[in-house]
Design a protein around this nucleic acid. Sequence first.
DNA 1: ACCTGAACACCGTTCAAGT
DNA 2: ACCTGAACACCGTTCAAGT
Lengths: 202, 202
Amino acid sequence: MKRGPQRSVNTETVLDAALELLDAGALTMRALAARLGLTPGALYTYFPDRAAIVTALADRLLGQANLDLLEHGGGSPAERIVAFALNLREVLMRHPAAVPAILGAAFNGPVALRVGESLLGALPDPRAAYTVMVYVLGSIALEAAETGSPVAPEAERIAARRAAFAVDPAAFPRTHAAADAIAAYVSTEQFRWGLERVLSAL
Amino acid sequence: MKRGPQRSVNTETVLDAALELLDAGALTMRALAARLGLTPGALYTYFPDRAAIVTALADRLLGQANLDLLEHGGGSPAERIVAFALNLREVLMRHPAAVPAILGAAFNGPVALRVGESLLGALPDPRAAYTVMVYVLGSIALEAAETGSPVAPEAERIAARRAAFAVDPAAFPRTHAAADAIAAYVSTEQFRWGLERVLSAL
DNA sequence: ACCTGAACACCGTTCAAGT
DNA sequence: ACCTGAACACCGTTCAAGT
């Protein structure tokens, strides 16, 4: 399962190992160094501190989303936004532990700038573009917050939510009646439904 | 500025001190104990671990929002949702360091259940209600992520964003042209504008 | 430039023992 | 029930010294 120490260490191999550890909820400078066959202090040759590693990871992950779907995809601007958003959600939900970092470093990184520029191409009003970003990143953040690693398939996660859901029907009648829909809050269908509604208003 | 150790320690006084430390970005069990005139181990009489303190803090903060605005306020359901959302944003933005915890513990706490139930009263379709929650919590999370403590007034934060904003106009023409609007992403006006658009589609 | 060894200044949590 | 003292098993970061 685990690979041995890397042959040659560089910025990229440090990030590779850091992402694996972050996914496992065990990203410490000491664990990272050990995995690379180094002493903790050696890491400071590659990054100034731990936060810089996490920021670089966030930008790199954002870069794995397929921007072509937004820039050169088929269909209307709204359809291209939906396609890109679905892809971004898929990419980020592979690494839920990294999502809070992306929220934090959201718009400082070089990749984030490109995404923002392309989004303004599809949706020229910046207020509208930001509303979409808020919805997409907010959805992913809420979903990631309750997801462990490794990420279970969506159907399983929804079933687990449904099974764990128990509220007093007398105190919370509407919530109790909506249990099925609430369990499906983390579904692709809910994500798409909300996004399409939001886009229809912009 | 700082108060001395509390006279009598209980769950509430622990949370009071914990919130002050969280705001200062310095919530450690040792600092918390010291502020209460205790030894670190004594804290485990009140809470099972650090995470439980943060969760309790998140629920308590959510409880400071005025739910009456949503349940018994005047105007249409949409107007009541806007009024409550503005109030919630104000309450949470007083403690930006606590916001990630609220995102995480969003819907486990007792107060969160009450908020959800009331929201379903104003917006009976659960998919629509969740879309609103995503927008509101997403907005607040993005805003909180870039805010230090203590929180500067909104006008100052926007001016600082505008002053710090510099992108290559050749590489990012649309982003460059939208600089003023982008600086105002964290404004109350942007928050309200987006929320009203979202509500209009639901 | 890259890395080690060792240290510094911290963490959260546990637990026997006291009151 | 509440608290201390002391320990255990960790952290991130720095830095002189080596290559």
